[in-house]
């Protein structure tokens, strides 16, 4: 096992998270703003997460071949749910009095979203991001089956040659990574809610 594999794993997770935010945040906002899209969007991301991760990656591989992009796309689809849903919930749950005040002050829909609603929903959105990151760290293990690399390959090789040390080193690194991300992001989250 080498640092390269750890960085490779991190790379997959971070790229996927950025992708999820870029896609998921607007979808969450859209679900909030438009009642008719609302159901379709929330239902779709729900369905995506019920798919087995490995199967999802397999299907994507059929289309674009086996490489790290396959894994990143898979992770994005897989972790859309927490971000879309939390964005939607965060926006929906803002005190209606504050929304009314913003409207009554003469803010347009978009201005209100940028200056009032998104900032207020952000702590909840951030919780969604944290869940997405931690989930991705685990799911990215399957990346190795579609040629995406990462720490999954260590564990896979360990299982293959029945080497306990190898399995343990891969697993522990993953756990450490997940715990470090989870704790540090939870700490930021706490600060956000306090504000």
């Amino acid at each position: 096992m080498s640092w390269t594999l750890i960085f490779q794993h991190l790379y997959l997770v971070i790229m996927a998270t950025i992708g999820t935010i870029v896609i998921g945040l607007p979808l969450g906002v859209l679900a909030y703003l438009n009642k008719s899209f609302n159901r379709l969007i929330l239902w779709s991301v729900d369905i995506l997460q019920t798919l087995p991760a490995l199967a999802l990656l397999g299907v994507i591989m059929v289309f674009i071949g086996g490489n790290s992009l396959t894994v990143i796309i898979g992770l994005i689809l897989y972790s859309l749910l927490p971000i879309v849903r939390n964005t939607y919930v965060g926006l929906t749950n803002i005190d209606p009095a504050i929304k009314e005040a913003a409207t009554a002050m003469g803010m347009g829909k978009f201005y209100k979203l940028i200056h009032v609603e998104l900032p207020l929903a952000f702590p909840v959105v951030f919780t969604g991001i944290r869940i997405a990151v931690v989930t991705s760290i685990g799911v990215a293990v399957f990346g190795t089956f579609v040629g995406g690399g990462g720490l999954g390959s260590v564990i896979y090789r360990g299982i293959h040659i029945q080497n306990m040390n190898l399995i343990m080193s891969g697993t522990l690194s993953l756990m450490a990574m997940a715990i470090i991300f989870d704790f540090s992001m939870a700490w930021i989250e706490k600060k956000l809610y306090q504000k």
């Binding site: 005190d95 504050i98 009314e100 005040a101 009554a104 002050m105």
Partner: peptide
């Protein structure tokens, strides 16, 4: 219209951010 009419409500509704 709204920018030219002040508005105060019971729940105060200041923007917490």
């Amino acid at each position: 219209l709204r920018r030219n009419i002040g508005y105060v409500i019971q729940q105060i509704g200041l923007f917490p951010n």
